[in-house]
Amino acid sequence: MALTDRRRVNGPALPTSIPFYDTPAPAPTVSRSPTELRKIFLKTSLTPPASGSAFYELTPPSTLKLTTSVYGPRPLPPSAGFSPTARVTAELKFAPFSTRGERRGYVRDGLERELSLQLQIAISGMVRASAYPKSGIDVFVTVLDCEGRIEEMIGVDAAEGEGERASLGAMQVLTGAITCASTAIADAGIECVDLVAAGMAALVEAKDGKDMVVMDPSPLDGWQVRAAVLVGYMAARDEITLVWSRGEVGVEEFTGVMESAVEVATKVRGVVNDAVRERLVALLKARGKKEGKKAITEDVEMTG
């Protein structure tokens, strides 16, 4: 007679399927005016081990949430060659549960590599790299939740599958990642020439058949998007660090959409300024309390 291990919990003999409950996505409806921007929640210093960090969220019904951690400046590995300036690297990764439908893998795919490259281009211009020779600054962005389906397409014939292979949701993710990464770099105390804020605008088809420009478009608004433009903009220097467009439009239409995207980035810059200012005030108050307590202790010791 075979002995059984009473302490072991044996699994089922036959394979079982785990129940999965998925709430259907709400039907897209246009609930904002073409010039109305969504509210942004931006908070710094939420990841203690990192040199700087930030959390970015768009207010409901939008679902975009992402976090950024910055490490550095830190010495480059001995195997790396000499660099007179700092090397800024950026990596964007979707969490497995961040998108609707199928779960994303743990290995970066083509879209994540493309967004990481665009993010690195956008934020490299803001860092005063000459102040950190032989150093590296690593920026990591994790997307916790994103809007719509990342694999949707933009273009006139998107319904037939002939549009650009980048969705409005993917561009919105990059917009939030640039703004959040810029705030996290400032939170890390890294010297910068300016702060970068990202903005996006789109050319959509209205109900009357005419085209119009929409600021800060969302996949949840239900617009029929013809083209979209994303810019990374440094307002103080009046300098554009990144232009990323999808769709096919004329030169005049593209110029109008790009100017609207710059206007959105200028308004988002105010949110970045408030977040950095709030963090700076908190640091100054903490330092003042610490120095005041130390001074009182020294005075007591001296009188004693």
Rank of each mutant, 00 (worst) to 15 (best):
K65M: 06
E147I: 03
I150S: 05
S45I: 02
V257N: 07
S17Q: 14
G155Q: 11
E91S: 14
P28C: 11
E91V: 11
M126Q: 15
T255I: 09
P48T: 09
G101N: 06
Y21P: 01
Y56G: 12
P60D: 01
V193C: 14
L195A: 04
S98N: 01
V196A: 15
T35S: 15
A197M: 10
G189D: 10
G105Q: 09
E57W: 07
L283Q: 14
A235P: 01
A131C: 10
Q118V: 03
P61C: 05
K294V: 00
E205Q: 13
F82G: 09
T16C: 13
G199S: 02
E298G: 00
G169R: 01
S79M: 07
V281K: 10
W223P: 05
R128F: 04
L168K: 04
K289F: 04
A295T: 05
A181Y: 00
D221Q: 15
A90N: 03
T255F: 07
A228W: 07
E114Q: 14
E151Q: 14
C146L: 08
M200I: 13
T85A: 07
L76S: 04
L92V: 06
R8K: 09
S98R: 00
L64D: 03
E36M: 12
G250T: 10
S33M: 12
P73V: 05
S33R: 13
M1E: 14
R8S: 06
A27V: 13
A131W: 03
P26W: 10
